[in-house]
Simulated scan of single mutants.
Amino acid sequence: MSEDKIEGVAIANLIGTDERSIVGWVYRWNTGALAVRWDIDGPQRVLECRPDLSDAEKREIDFGGLTQIPTLDSWQDQL
């Protein structure tokens, strides 16, 4: 990565609740920050990261919040 511009590299896949679909990626930027990038369907409930992240990395991306994203079924139940 170049230090002249901000660049990121994917360090983990976010796995959906079906236990096999990749619904997003965790990127580490050359600034040291972590960020989540979703697939084309946008934010979805996450089951796990592969490979697993450290506890500090999970806190930085609010992994607990990612596991609580409402599903389409839960939205329909509220209507």
Rank of each mutant, 00 (worst) to 15 (best):
W29P: 01
R59H: 05
F63Q: 05
E60I: 09
D77H: 11
W38L: 06
T71A: 00
G8W: 11
V23H: 04
Q78H: 12
T71L: 07
G42Q: 00
S2V: 11
G65I: 00
G16V: 14
P43D: 03
E60G: 00
D77L: 13
L53K: 10
E7A: 14
F63Y: 12
E3P: 10
D77V: 02
G42S: 09
F63E: 03
D41T: 04
A12M: 12
C49S: 08
R59F: 04
V36A: 09
E3K: 13
R28P: 04
G16F: 10
I69F: 09
A10C: 14
P51Q: 08
I61D: 02
W25H: 09
G32L: 11
L14Y: 02
D18R: 06
R45T: 03
W25N: 06
D39H: 08
F63N: 07
I69E: 07
E19G: 04
E3R: 13
N13H: 15
D18G: 12
R45G: 02
R45H: 00
K5N: 13
V26K: 09
N30K: 13
D52T: 09
D77A: 14
W25Y: 07
D73I: 08
V26C: 06
W38Q: 05
T17F: 09
F63G: 09
G42H: 06
G24E: 04
R37T: 03
P43V: 04
A33P: 01
A35Y: 02
G65T: 00
P51E: 05
A12C: 15
C49K: 03
R28A: 07
R20E: 09
E7Y: 15
S54F: 03
I40W: 08
E19V: 05
N13Y: 14
P43Q: 09
G32Y: 05
I22N: 04
R28W: 05
S74C: 03
E19I: 04
S2N: 14
A10W: 08
D77R: 15
A35E: 13
D4A: 12
I61R: 04
L34G: 07
V46R: 01
S74N: 04
K58W: 01
G8Y: 09
I11D: 02
D77E: 14
